[in-house]
Design a protein around this nucleic acid. Structure first.
Lengths: 266, 266
DNA sequence: CGTAGTGTTGAATTGAATCAAGTGTCGTGG
DNA sequence: CCACGACACTTGATTCAATTCAACACTACG
């Protein structure tokens, strides 16, 4: 197994570190490059083009707008902005959050390459949260009215977009269960395993990665305080299940992590 | 305001009590009647037919299967069953739940008339939870492959179904926020207000209704224990915000309830 | 009429939050 | 290039909201 070595801490937040670490030498295109097409995108097996044929991908390509990259902290959109588009993460990562009346935000989701952002705005025609880049990132913007028109022409695309939305619904319900009945340790373990499989999906190491978000972001997402997240990390490390160093994390015992959340590890 | 009087306790769980209480005399069709069509359904302004014209509604009608009513406790489907259809609640109510490894269930959602059930199964082709009737209920079954075919023909239907799914996603994210940062009292108040507006949507009293679910169901849904839910109900009643009597509930001070969850009551 | 399920209430316990103090890390501008 | 300031993170002590444990009342239904 080729677990790519993590670079020194001076580049922990380097915009490339999460995106191209273990890409093969045959793929030289910069992940932030705006001139890439859906057909040549390394994510086309996960993203919208899945299940489309060449002609169809070309049609999709026509409506996708590849905007300039976002810097860390830049907003993709803000709560109550008019809904116009959904977005596909091409590189980097994002967080969605809502601001509570008391001013403090609550994180509602994290988005990694190949994932779709903004579907919460479809019904009300306004985004129900704000979404911000966690590092140097690039996205594909897909104007929703055009996506609808194209979906109408391409049954495959309609089918797939229904599936993407259904997946989001199923995922949200899992989080509902997580938050309503799991302990701090179970939530944290589940979160790390979730990230692990999402990184694996984009051909990055499932056991060794950089957390793009702060402890505070994780806490808000999991309904815990920063202090608790930090304590759980320390305790998991003491138990030998993970190795943490700042944003660098290694899952050293996946099956023990799975055991925490009650998944049988035959 | 015409707040319909609630019937005696001997009919608290009567299958009609939630469905037809304040219907006008001009509408005599039994809500469990299987021979109703979408065109004549009293829910057609909320359910799938919304935004469809007469011809289109007729086409939808053709694919809808109106099954026999379900008794209290009957399952609509079970976790891991093959996904074939989504369902629209015509009368009664349902709960979705997943069984945790420890055997105890966690409720993931409640469904009232006019709401759509089963979208969590679209992506994986298997239902990710079990769904059970909470009282005598009736549903419309919509085979998903046919819904897709029809959506392809009717842009209005495609648009509307995207909106229904987007709404579900937005709703789930609100619950995420609720569970991750609200206290037991805030969750309970928010839950009651949510039910209130959903009943209002189907022209029932927003301040006086019957809870179709147990305290335990509510607890599982909100991430609280039965005891806590019971205590919060008692305490809200002592404060004069609600009046509870078994499954009967009256919201006597809506703005105070809204104030609990931090909504400005101008 | 009895029994299982549902709901309430009280007392003790506890997991996570809060409060508090400190260290580590990063990006900035002198 | 270093020093500074702003965050980000950690760790400990204390508090508190909600759970757990326990006992009992109510309701509904065969």
């Amino acid at each position: 197994m080729n677990t790519p070595s993590i670079q020194g801490k001076e580049s922990v937040l380097d915009e490339l570190s999460l995106s191209v670490r273990n890409e093969s030498a045959t793929q030289k295109i910069c992940p932030h490059n705006s001139n890439i097409s859906c057909a040549s995108c390394r994510l086309n097996e996960l993203c919208l083009p899945i299940a489309l044929n060449k002609t169809e991908i070309h049609q999709l390509d026509e409506i996708v707008e590849r905007n300039r990259p976002l810097k860390k902290g830049d907003h993709l959109y803000r709560q109550n902005d008019e809904f116009r588009s959904v977005f596909a993460v091409r590189s980097g990562s994002f967080k969605s959050y809502v601001l509570s009346d008391t001013g403090q935000g609550r994180v509602t989701g994290f988005y990694l390459p190949g994932e779709i952002i903004g579907m919460d705005g479809i019904a009300s025609k306004h985004y129900s949260n704000s979404t911000q880049s966690l590092e140097h990132s690039s996205i594909c913007e897909i104007p929703f009215s055009q996506l609808e028109k194209l979906s109408h022409q391409l049954p495959n695309l309609q089918h797939h977009f229904f599936a993407i939305m259904g997946n989001e619904i199923a995922k949200d319900q899992q989080i509902h269960t997580l938050l309503s009945s799991y302990s701090a340790e179970e939530r944290t373990a589940s979160f790390l395993l979730g990230l692990s499989s999402r990184y694996a999906r984009v051909s990055l190491s499932p056991t060794r990665f950089l957390l793009p978000m702060t402890r505070s972001d994780i806490g808000e997402y999991l309904g815990l305080t920063v202090e608790t997240v930090s304590r759980i990390f320390t305790s998991l490390q003491k138990k030998g299940l993970i190795e943490v160093n700042n944003r660098e994390i290694e899952l050293t015992d996946l099956s023990a992590l799975r055991a925490i959340i009650g998944v049988d590890t035959c």
